[in-house]
Structures are given as C-alpha cells and as structure tokens.
Design a protein around this nucleic acid. Structure first.
Length: 949
RNA sequence: GGGCGUUUAGCUCAGUUGGAAGAGUGCUUGGUUUGCAACCAAGAUGCCGGGGGUUCAAAUCCCCCAACGUCCA
C-alpha cells in the first residue's frame, strides 16, 4: 500500500485544507480552498522578488546569514533542542562520500543505523554543505549554489526502547511556528506538500515546505527500510517499518536569506559586496547596455522568476533553450536580442558564481583539504580552476589570492578554520601557478595539433578535442579560442559536443565501476562469540592458552604459502591484520599437534589464524607469538604515529594521514601536503620524531564512546579511516599525536630506539609517501646502505668518502673518452682510405671504398659520414663488420655522381644474403645485418663485383 | 579508485612509415658597431627519464619502473 495521508492537527488548527495538485498530482495543504497547484510547479512563480516575504531582516550578506541562523537555532533551543556545532565539510568520518552533502550526513552511517548514540537528542544544527552536482548551473539559474548551509532539527526516536521524543505533529508544528512567528511569513503563502522520500535503502513520509514558489525546507520522517515483505510501496520498491524513527529536516539558510532580501537572485542576498566588487572590476554596469539600473534589476528579477519555473537543465545545450527563454522573456515585456542576452548573462553568471566557488574553496581548504589531481583534493582544484577560468573570461586583473583575501574579509570568518589564512594563500598561489603552466603547455599542444589541420577547416576531429581535454586540461571551448587566435578562424565547436564528451566520460567511469567480488577467506563461518583480544590489555604478552572454536579450510585467493586452515579461538594475543598493521605470526600447539601461524586476519568480530594444519574443535592450544616480528611491527606502528605528528607540527594543520602500511622491513605513511618534500624537510621531521621518542615517557591508551571521542578530540581522530563501532580506541602520544587506532603500540615510545625517514615519493599530487624504518629495521637498513657504499668504494678502489667524487670523475672521463674514440675511429678510416691503397679505388670520378672494419652500427655510421659527407670527392662506400652477427652499411655522397649512379639499398640487398640477413634504408644510405659473420668477406667480394671495382 | 598524456641540448620544444638526433633561445670564440642593444660568422653542448624485450637496426614498437601533468568518479 501507499503511505497514508499526512493528516495533522497543526494543519486543521491553522485553517489548512488538503488538496491535490493538478500539475504534479501530489497532495498538499493550503489555507486557500481554491488553490490547485502545490506551489512548486512550472505555474508557480516566485512572489518574493522585489517584495520580501520574510519580514524584519534588513541585513545582507554575512550579517543576514548570521542573524537568520541565530533566529533558527535560537527558536529550536527554546523548544528543547540542543545546539550542535557544525561538522567539517570534509566528511572524514565516512568512507563513501568526500564532502558533507546534508546535515544528516553528519550522523550516517552509525547514528542512523542505531549503533551509536547521537551527540544530542533532539538536536539543532546549521551544517555547511557542498554539492558539486549542479556546479554548471551556479550563477546561471539565480538560485543554485555549490556551498550552502543546511539548517536542521534532527530527532532519533527508538520507540522499542521507550525513547520517543516527537514525530510528525510536533515537527510540522515547530516548522509552522518558526515560519509564521519568527519569520513573520503569512500562512497564506505557505503550502505543505506530501511527497514521500526514499534513498539509500530507507524511506519515509516527507513534507516539502513551499513559500512564495520557493522550496524553503523539507521535513523527512524516516521510519522505513527496504524489505521484500514490507507493507508499503514507494516508487516501485517495498519498505517495512524499522525500529528507528528518524526526523531529518533541511532548511536552506541561503534561501531564507533570499526570501528575506527579495533580491533578483540569491547571490545578491548572500554575497552582495562581492557581486558589486566584481561588477566594478569587470566594468559591468547597466550603462554598458544602455539601460538604467532599475531596468536591469527588473530584467534580472524576471529572468530569475523564469528560471524558477522553467526548470532548465543547464548544460543540456544552449541554442534552443536560450531561444525559448528569450521568447518567454518577451512575453513578459522584456524584449531583448540574443546578442544582448548573452552580453549580459555571460559575464553576470561568472560574477555570481565566483563568490559561491570561493566560499566552497575556503570551506574545503579551511578544513585542511589539499588540492590534488585525484580524490577529494581534485574537487578543490576543479573549483579553483573554474574560478580562474571565469576570472580570465571576465578579464579581471586580480589574482586568486586577491579573491580569497576579499572573500575572507567580507564573507567568511577565517577564525573558525583549521587551516591558517597564510596556509590558504600559499596553497592558492600554488594553484594559480599550476593553472598558468597548464594554459601555457596547452597552447603548445593546440599548436602541435593544428599542424595537421588545414587553416580553412571548420571542425577539429573529435578525438583531438577529447585527448586535449582529458590529457592536458584544455576544454574544447578553449581549444577553439586558442586556434582562432593562431589563425584557424573558421573553426567552431559542434553543438552538443560537450554533452557527448560528458557521456563518454560517464561510459568510461561505468566500465571502470564493475568491481570484482573478492573470494571470501573461508567458506562459511558458524555462529561464534567474538574473539576475545588479549593483545590490547598487555601488548607484550607473547603466550596464551585458548580453546579451538572452529577449524576451517581456507578458500581465499590471497593466502600465505602453505596456509591450509583457518583456526578460530575463544581468545588470542595474535593481532589480526588491520589499520595498516600486518598480522602476527607464531605457532599453535595442542597435546597432539603443532602448526605454524602464517598470518592472522579478521572477519567480522572473529580473529582467524591461518595455519598449515587443522585442529579438532574443543582442543586446548598453547599459542606463542613470533615476538621479533610483532615487536618490529609495533616499532613501526608507533613510529608512524610519531612521524605523522611531527609532520603536522612542522608542515601545518593540513597534514592528514591518507594511508599507511606497517610491515617488518619498513613502514609507509602517506600524508597530504601541497608541495613535494625535500631531504631537508625529511631531516627536520626525522629529528623531531626522534626527539619525541626521547621526551615522551608513556603513551596513553583510552577507550571512549564515539560521542565523547568526537566531542573531545574532533574528527582528526579518524586519520586511519572511520572505525565501525561505538567504542573508539584512542592512542595518545602526549599532545603530539592523538588518533583512533586499533593497532598494537608500545607503552613506552623510548623502546623504539630510533626512527629514520629513508625517502619520500609522491603517491599522487598532494599526497606524499614517507618511507620509515624504526628499531631493529632502522639498524639493518643502515647496514644495508653502508654495504652498498662499501661495494661501490671497492669497485672504484677508493675510500668510501671519495665515492661521489670518484663516480663523478669516472663518468666525466668516460664521456670524454667516448668522444675521443669516435674521433680516432674516424681518423683511422680517413687514413685507410686516403692513400689510395687496397681499400679504395676510383671509377669515373667516384671514389669507391669497400672495407671491413671493427665496430657496431653507430661507429660505422660515423665512419661513413667521414667518407661520404665531403661533396668534393663523390664516394660510394661499403663497410662491413663482424659485430653482432655481421653488419653491412652502404652509403653514397648525396647529390653527386655517386648517388646518381648507385643505389645503396639495391647494393645492400644484393650482398646481405652472404651474411644471412637483410636490411634497408634510403637510396643514399642503407644498413643491414645478419647472423653469419663468416660470410662477410663473400659479401664484400660480391659488392666489388656488383659495383665493378 | 579508474582513464589518458608527457619525459629529447642549460631553457622552451619539433622529430612523419623503425633506417645519419633537430629548431628557437641561451652559451663560447671571432667580426661589425658601441650608450645599451642589435647584427654577421664559426663552435661547443645529448646515457632521446631508468630497466627489460622485439628487430639486421629502436628516440620511434611492446612490457615493467620512476617523475611530472591532466580528466573523470
């Protein structure tokens, strides 16, 4: 069945009636009994432009947002909600999304699944969000933003546990009071639309709150989960009730501001100073179009209204939609030519989009993101590039740093950012340099591509445009513009090309998304209690007694050599692979059997010991760790934390762990940073890390529930990835590094002995990988290095300290000598041929040289050059060598009787059979070889015969 | 996470079907002129990113590695 109507007392008490929309068929509540559209259709225009629908908010920009937010949160605080500080826009507690796209994302997946308590209940929040899906529409539609704040009240009800805070009735009542009392909106202007929500396996009833034609809020009542036998059906999928009942609301802060300001577009409501400033910088004024200020404002308002109802998909392709838009404008009394339309909207859309993009950028970078060519960092780079491109199109003479300084001064208080203002400026400076470099290289690429294109061509090959875009970052638009500047003025871009390119990208992405299901480690695991970990209580425990709960045969693909069985014990001090730390090795012994543990892994809550033989269920076993291995892994793991902390302290707050691995030989730590590290950086980090080992007496291991962990330490805790459960194990190395970590660590950092950072390399742009050795591994690494140096010194027969100088000298001498040898070889050839001896003869003014020489093709080439380059003595030369199976070369002096009379390729073909090979080349220069060097004299004899010498 | 591209002289980059490594700029020397600059002539400078393979022959084709860049999710 479908969801029942949302029939609430709050509607009736306030004079609302339930009607069905004749456009969308959705049911909605209104005070106007005659109304037959729900408010959010192509027939419902914005009514607030020029006449604000929210009263009492005369501010604009940041002040308006601050007051609006405060009014919202204050209202809810007065009604039993706890105010929660916003989460970062980088969703680092999640592994499925990069950015926080809604306030509910803060509480997914663990709070919404019921595994973890919410930080407060009910709660109120205003969460900055970033959504890049509509990035092309920003600045064009009048209402789209990539960055916005979602104000919300959330409730997490558990009726099965007797925790029921409130549900639909109270929720809608709060909303209605807020709109009518706090914001003084006329109840007549509000419609509540029933529109069930579903997504991600959950669903529920939902109410859209439409005011003045604009959707200001959505109230979702999520109490259903996907279930085949569920009693409700929504959009073709069946759902049943779940124990959790969650209220997820979303109030668009910026939309409230717009409705309060009544400006032509949302951008003028929230970024008024930036819009003005950019207009000035770009020389954009009503004057320029022969209009008065009011005329232009009225036109823009009309356009915004039209956008509100026309639902134009930006990017779906210009021409036709634009024509329709212009004709609709004309119907509304704004006659405007297409040229004028473009002349106004093109620059204006950039002027509107830049503040929005800068806000997204300062949010992302402010949270510590480092721009990159992959993952979340790419999103930041993309935004920076968009801004730079728009800046160039507007012809602004300002830098990205100017833009960010303006933005931080006017729109975004930098004091609540994690990144420093200087850090932000450094990063953006770097981005601007990269952008300039990309353009410069791009022009070269276009230039090269144009070589094969006739100057009167009208189109470029699709393949060329795709490649230039994907490999060099120059968009098809830009290619055409560059080409036009270079003289290919007939070129244009086929309509719909951008859409085709997007489709092509989507197809590639889709093909790549087909992932392979890994083979499970063991077939089927019986229901067993969670393995009790002994490795946390006492990290130095190496032996234990346990009983065998299961002995399973292994089925996985990635197994250590000789592993046949997976043993599950009731308890263990074997640490299973996880958090980048490799699993323990060792042995298990029962009265009747003894096997090696070749690796230890975790499946769910069970620790599986990979052994080379099986036990009986119920056997008592004695387990013993390979302690040298475990100790080395602990050295490396604790060292990685210390190095990470040292890097953060030295390089800045944006240093975040992007991955780590700890094996016996060495450890790796990937950190985010905006430039390559050099040896001096590594030395500094290394020195600080070793200082920490000496100074910090003990590490602190704490277990907190997630709510308290988040509150106490923030999200930087989750550098190693988001843990699953409610209990968070935290390793604290004084104030140097605090992280959630399930690995095994030394209680005393001093036991590590020493830490060395061997080298670093770039994993991707913006991520630097540090290679670390600690403890005994540091020692054996040093020995290995010394051994290499000693062997090099032995070869050079110099003391080790002279190796660099010796290598340099030898390399230099080798180069000099190679040159001298070439010169000498040429000299020998000259001598052997100049005297008119056996090796050379003359036929009708052409010198004939036929001789056997030593050397490879390269050396023979030099000899031939010596012989045939001088035009005053026309020469035909045939050289043979026994090198590598026999080589033959034939050359004739170009543009001389020699080349007119003889064809080098023909001669070569005629003689190469004697050495059992072939060859080819140009008529004046041919080379070949074979496999029978003993045939060389015959080949040369044959040459004499053919030439007649 | 996936796709693509680049790596050649100090610098910026060409290099076609595998067959004698190039241009511009800079450098050195000489000349002319001299306030700087400009001009003319000659010359030097290359592990064609590293390793392996195919081939008589590889800057060029194939594989691996590295650095750099770029697009998409």
């Amino acid at each position: 069945m479908e969801l029942p109507p949302i029939d609430l007392a709050v509607f009736h008490e306030n004079g609302y009636v339930r009607r069905q929309c004749r456009v969308t068929d959705l049911w909605f509540w209104t005070t106007d009994g005659e109304r037959n559209t729900c408010g959010d259709t192509e027939e419902d225009e914005y009514t607030f432009i020029g006449s604000p629908i929210i009263a009492g908010f005369p501010e604009r920009g940041r002040e308006l947002k601050d007051r609006m937010r405060e009014a919202f949160l204050g209202f809810l605080e007065g009604r039993g909600h706890t105010r929660i500080a916003p989460y970062p826009v980088l969703a680092r507690w999640r592994d499925d999304i990069h950015l926080t796209i809604a306030s509910i994302a803060d509480f997914q997946p663990h709070v919404t699944s019921g595994a973890v308590e919410p930080p407060a209940n009910p709660l109120a929040i205003s969460q900055p969000c970033i959504r890049l899906t509509d990035v092309d529409a920003v600045g064009r539609s009048g209402r789209h933003l990539t960055t916005f704040e979602m104000m919300a009240h959330h409730v997490f009800n558990r009726p099965d546990e007797g925790k029921m805070y409130y549900w639909m009735e109270e929720c809608v009542k709060y909303c209605h009071e807020l709109l009518c009392d706090t914001f003084a909106i006329d109840a007549k202007e509000i419609t509540y639309v029933e529109n069930p929500w579903s997504g991600g396996g959950n669903a529920g009833a939902a109410v859209e709150v439409i005011v003045g034609g604009l959707e200001l809020a959505t109230l979702v009542f999520m109490n259903l989960e996907e279930r085949e036998d569920g009693e409700f059906e929504i959009k073709g999928t069946r759902y049943g009730e779940m124990p959790l009942q969650i209220i997820d609301t979303g109030y668009g802060l910026e939309r409230f501001c717009w409705a309060a300001a009544g400006t032509p577009t949302i951008y003028e409501a929230i970024y008024p100073d930036s819009v003005e400033w950019l207009k000035q910088q770009a020389g954009f004024s009503a004057d320029k179009f022969g209009m008065k200020e009011e005329e232009l404002a009225s036109l823009l308002g009309e356009m915004s209204r039209l956008f509100g109802i026309m639902n134009i998909e930006v990017g779906s392709d210009g021409g036709r939609m634009r024509a329709l838009f212009i004709s609709r404008l004309a119907e509304r009394g704004h006659e405007i030519s297409e040229e004028m339309f473009n002349a106004i909207t093109e620059p204006l859309s950039s002027i509107y989009a830049i503040p929005d993009h800068m806000h997204a950028l300062s949010n992302m970078l402010g949270d510590g993101l480092v721009p990159s060519n992959a993952k979340a960092g790419y999103l930041a780079r993309m935004m920076a590039r968009r801004v730079l491109r728009m800046r160039d199109e507007l012809g602004l003479k300002i830098t990205l740093v100017d833009l960010v300084n303006h933005h931080l001064d006017v729109n975004h208080d930098p004091t609540d950012m994690k990144q420093t203002r200087d850090g932000l400026i450094t990063i953006l400076k770097g981005e601007e340099v990269r952008y300039g470099e990309m353009l410069r290289k791009g022009e070269q690429v276009v230039k090269t591509a144009l070589k094969s294109i006739p100057q009167d061509a009208t189109e470029l090959p699709d393949e060329t445009l795709f490649t230039i875009n994907d490999s060099h970052g120059i968009s098809p638009d830009l290619v055409i513009r560059i080409a036009s500047e270079m003289g290919w003025q007939a070129l244009s871009l086929r309509t719909g090309f951008s859409a085709e390119m997007a489709e092509r990208h989507a197809a590639i992405a889709k093909a790549a998304a087909k992932s392979v299901e890994p083979v499970p480690l063991v077939g089927s695991i019986p229901e067993l209690p969670a393995s009790i970990p002994l490795y946390y209580e006492d990290v130095s425990q190496r032996e234990f007694e346990a009983s065998v709960l299961a002995s399973l045969s292994l089925t996985g693909e990635d197994l250590p050599e000789g592993a046949t069985h997976g043993i599950i014990l009731d308890r263990t001090c074997f640490y299973p692979e996880g958090g980048g730390q490799e699993g323990d090795h060792g042995s298990l012994k029962s009265d009747s059997a003894a096997y090696s543990v070749l690796d230890t892994r975790k499946v769910g809550s069970l620790v599986i010991h990979l052994t080379n033989g099986g036990f009986e269920v119920g056997d008592m076993v004695h387990g013993e760790l390979d302690w040298d291995r475990r100790r080395q892994l602990m050295d490396h793991h604790t060292a990685v934390h210390i190095v990470g902390g040292a890097a953060r302290r030295l390089l800045g707050p944006h240093i975040y762990q992007a991955g780590a691995n700890k094996s016996v030989d060495s450890a790796r730590l990937d950190i985010t940073h905006h430039r390559r590290l050099n040896r001096a950086d590594l030395d500094e980090i290394e020195a600080l890390a070793n200082e920490v080992i000496q100074q910090v007496q003990r590490t602190e291991k704490i277990t907190l529930d997630r709510k308290d962990a988040d509150r106490k330490y923030g999200f930087d805790l989750y550098q190693g990835g988001a843990p699953k459960g409610n209990d968070i194990r935290i390793l604290r190395i004084a104030d140097h590094d605090i992280q959630a970590c399930g690995g095994t660590h030394h209680d005393e950092p001093g036991r590590i002995g020493q830490i060395r950072i061997i080298r670093s390399n770039a994993v991707q742009d913006g991520v630097e990988r540090l290679h670390i050795v600690a403890g005994a591994a540091a020692m054996s690494h040093a020995r290995g290095q010394e051994d290499i140096l000693r062997r090099a010194a032995d070869s050079f027969q110099v003391p080790t300290e002279d190796v660099p100088a010796a290598a340099q000298r030898f390399f230099g001498e080798w180069k000099d000598q190679r040159k001298r040898i070439e010169a000498l070889e040429a000299e020998i050839v000259r001598l052997r041929t100049s005297g008119g001896g056996d090796d050379s003869s003359e036929i009708d003014g052409v010198r004939i040289v036929i001789m056997e020489v030593d050397g490879d093709l390269k050396q023979m080439t030099n000899m031939l050059r010596e012989l045939t380059l001088d035009a005053s003595t026309p020469t035909l030369a045939v050289l043979g060598s026994r090198d590598g199976g026999g080589k033959l070369m034939v050359a004739a002096t170009e543009n001389s009787p020699a080349s007119e009379r003889y064809n080098a390729v023909d001669i070569l073909r005629g003689i190469s059979g004697h050495i059992g090979g072939g060859g080819g080349g140009r008529p004046t220069f041919a080379q070949g070889g074979g496999s029978n060097p003993d045939g060389l004299p015959d080949a040369l004899a044959a040459a004499r015969e053919i030439i007649g010498a």
